[in-house]
Nucleic acid binder design. Structure first.
Length: 340
DNA sequence: TATGTACTATACTTTACATCA
DNA sequence: CGTGATGTAAAGTATAGTACA
């Protein structure tokens, strides 16, 4: 499901040149990832390493704004966007996980021992990563939160007891999440084994982690959209003002009445009356004279074709130079450019 | 090709716990 | 120190999509 408003086109590379929308639910990219990710089990492992934001804009260059820490090649979009959702200690979960290996150890050890087991050790060699097991943590942590989940043996005996992962476990999971935001079954079991958790717990942690990432991303995106909206509102006001001025000027004395006859000409292609920039109305000429003609094919198309006139919302964002920011120089209107 | 099943995903909700005024 | 409000995170539930037999 996706609710959204999309304007304009998507570039060849798959990166949207103009996508303005608030996505709700599953996006197409994500769906594609699901379809093309590979074989069952492992299919999501690589495909979803870089979750796409639900809201994407490439108004970035048009508006002169940047996505918060827009990344070059970030592994995860969330991480790339500057908020710190994925920050984790410099512990390599990949190393400990043996990501490349296909170690399919039985999950029994992990299932049978819980962090809170009185006799439970912490089989993961966390010491190699400066980590301690929960038991150790509880003993040495000095009040630090530790895993307090009742063992699986207790399950069903009473109301569910909330598990609090230890800092070490959380850090380790974070590190794994930085590597891959989804887990295949083997990875899940391996990670659970390493952390002395049940695979289900690892799975739930990743689910919640993805949800948190998405939530934060949504917040960031909303903030950005607000800024875009403010910019557009300002620009709209400015244009209205300019239009009113031009109308007033025209009412007072039509500008062409004061132009020498030789400066007026009819454009053969658009059939508009154009005038010599030097003698045009006082408010428009600077922009017309100063603005360079669009150099890219896209920009030319955007300006030239009727459906991509500057009044078209899509055209405004299609090319940075055509977006009418107050501080930006604008290309001349089609008639003027075509005629001169 | 249609269908049932297993698996996994997300979205939303519930619940337990920590923190703070 | 006790208590209620609030935030956070783990876990549960519902539902949908995909692969496969």
């Amino acid at each position: 499901m996706e609710l959204g408003l999309s304007l304009g086109e998507v570039a060849d590379g798959g990166r949207p040149e103009l996508v303005l929308g608030l996505g709700v639910g599953r996006g197409e990219e994500e769906e594609r990832g699901r379809r093309e990710g590979g074989v069952v089990g492992a299919r999501r492992w690589e495909a979803a390493a870089s979750p796409e934001p639900s809201v994407r804009l490439s108004l970035v260059t048009s508006l002169g704004l940047r996505w918060p820490s827009e990344s070059e090649n970030g592994r995860s979009a969330a991480r790339a966007r500057g908020f710190d959702v994925n920050r984790a200690p410099s512990v390599s979960a990949r190393d400990a996980l043996g990501m490349e290996e296909d170690e399919e150890g039985p999950a029994a050890p992990a299932l049978s021992s819980s962090p809170n087991d009185s006799g439970g050790s912490f089989p993961l060699d966390l010491s190699a990563h400066g980590l301690r097991g929960p038991t150790d943590t509880a003993a040495h942590g000095g009040g630090e939160r530790s895993s307090s989940r009742a063992s699986d043996d207790d399950e069903g005996a009473s109301a569910r007891k909330k598990l609090r992962l230890s800092k070490e476990q959380s850090a380790f999971l974070e590190e794994s999440f930085k590597e891959h935001s989804t887990l295949n079954p083997k990875q899940k079991v391996a990670l659970a084994k390493q952390l002395n958790l049940r695979p289900r717990q690892v799975e739930v942690w990743f689910q919640n982690r993805r949800a948190r990432t998405k939530l934060k991303q949504t917040e960031v995106d909303c903030e950005y959209l607000k800024r875009c909206c403010e910019t557009l509102t300002k620009e709209n006001r400015r244009l209205h003002k300019e239009l009113a001025e031009l109308r007033a000027l025209k009412t007072a004395r039509p500008f062409y009445m004061h132009l020498p006859a030789t400066t007026l000409s009819m454009c053969p292609s658009c059939e508009r009356v154009a005038s010599n920039p030097a003698s045009a109305s006082p408010s428009a000429p600077e922009a017309a004279a100063a603005a360079p003609a669009p150099t890219t094919a896209a920009a030319r198309t955007a300006v030239a074709s009727p459906e991509h006139r500057p009044s078209s919302f899509a055209a405004m964002f299609a090319d940075p130079r055509s977006f009418p920011l107050a501080t930006q120089q604008r290309p001349p209107p089609p008639a003027a450019r075509n005629c001169l």
